[in-house]
């Protein structure tokens, strides 16, 4: 499957300029969105408000932010301390991961979500019914409901550009090559070389999130300093994968993402068992009545004799 397309996101060189986020908005013709006041609870819930705790004011992927550059501001080991002598900023340009096993696609009841010829996960907007099942199924909180259209949205890996031989708009705009578009196999070897280079320079915290390419190391700074990290393959692999410098949770990524289908057969099995128990006890309730009546009739007959 060498035709699979994806992106390698090297967070070690992301400067948080948000050029990718702007390029995504521009190419996909999404409104810029002005942050609303923090007092607006609905806006906070929908990630449309000022965060108040970060220089990042997008705060989360949403139906109109298909790409989001996360700012992870680690101001010393104790955030409440006034000691700001050892700050660390981690940046990560996040989007749909175009999972090899995609929870969203698995549960979609209409076929609106589909796998493209490039291995990415796209949405037929005219087929989506807005049931929002995929929203709760995505382990990364990527796909989001668009209240305006009544359908869901997420990064579609610039399917329209890929079809005419172009790469993604975000990667094109990235001034530091933190985002690289290409075939997944080429990107994997590029990522492996990059981790090895960083390790050779003493930055041993670099590892890959999305594929297990055999790298491991130790976090060198921040609150998790000294913690061992290693490459992690997630849900069968991510076509958009990351080079990280701290634990996945620090970037808002689950250490162990899982497919929603893991629960299907066991849950259905338990449901069948409970149906059987209820059926048998329900039948017993009606049968017991007959037995009670027979017993009463028997007693009356005995008394009459």
């Amino acid at each position: 499957m060498s035709d699979l397309r994806g992106m390698f996101v090297d967070t070690s060189i992301c400067t948080g300029c948000k050029a990718c986020q702007v390029a995504c908005k521009e190419w996909n013709e999404m409104a810029p969105g002005v942050p609303l006041p923090m007092e607006d609870e609905a806006a906070v819930r929908e990630h449309r408000a000022f965060t108040g705790n970060s220089y990042d004011n997008t705060s989360h992927l949403s139906a109109t932010n298909w790409r989001h550059v996360k700012f992870i501001e680690q101001i010393g080991p104790d955030p409440s301390s006034s000691d700001r002598s050892d700050p660390r900023w981690l940046m990560m340009s996040d989007s749909c991961k175009h999972c090899v096993q995609a929870g969203c696609l698995e549960v979609c009841p209409t076929g609106a979500l589909y796998r493209t010829e490039f291995g990415s996960v796209d949405i037929h907007q005219d087929v989506c019914i807005g049931c929002r099942y995929c929203v709760g199924a995505c382990p990364f909180g990527v796909i989001a409901f668009n209240k305006r259209t009544g359908r869901v949205n997420k990064c579609i890996l610039c399917q329209d550009r890929l079809e005419i031989g172009m790469g993604t708009a975000c990667a094109k705009a990235c001034p530091t090559s933190s985002l690289v578009f290409g075939t997944v196999s080429e990107l994997q070897s590029m990522a492996s070389d990059r981790v090895k280079l960083l390790h050779s320079r003493g930055q041993t915290d670099a590892y890959i999130y999305g594929w297990d390419l055999g790298n491991s190391g130790k976090i060198t700074a921040g609150p998790n300093k000294g913690t061992a990290v290693k490459d992690v393959e997630v849900v069968g692999g991510l076509n958009v994968f990351y080079l990280l410098l701290d634990k996945p949770e620090v970037y808002g990524l689950p250490a162990h993402a899982s497919l929603p289908q893991r629960n299907f057969v066991p849950s259905a099995g338990v449901a069948l068992i409970s149906a059987a128990v209820l059926g048998v006890t329900g039948l017993a309730a009606f049968r017991r009545r007959r037995m009670d009546e027979n017993a009463t009739a028997g007693t009356e007959a005995t008394n009459a004799n």
């Binding site: 929870g103 549960v107 099942y133 709760g136 199924a137 995505c138 382990p139 993402a257 899982s258 929603p260 289908q261 629960n263 299907f264 066991p266 849950s267 259905a268 099995g269 338990v270 449901a271 068992i273 409970s274 149906a275 209820l278």
Partner: peptide, 23 residues
């Protein structure tokens, strides 16, 4: 019940009993 267990939502997907409970 099975439907909400087959997600990645906290609580819902942390148990196999949702379907049985809903029945």
């Amino acid at each position: 019940g099975v439907l909400i267990a087959v997600t990645n939502q906290g609580v819902w997907s942390d148990t196999w009993l949702m379907g049985g409970l809903f029945i």
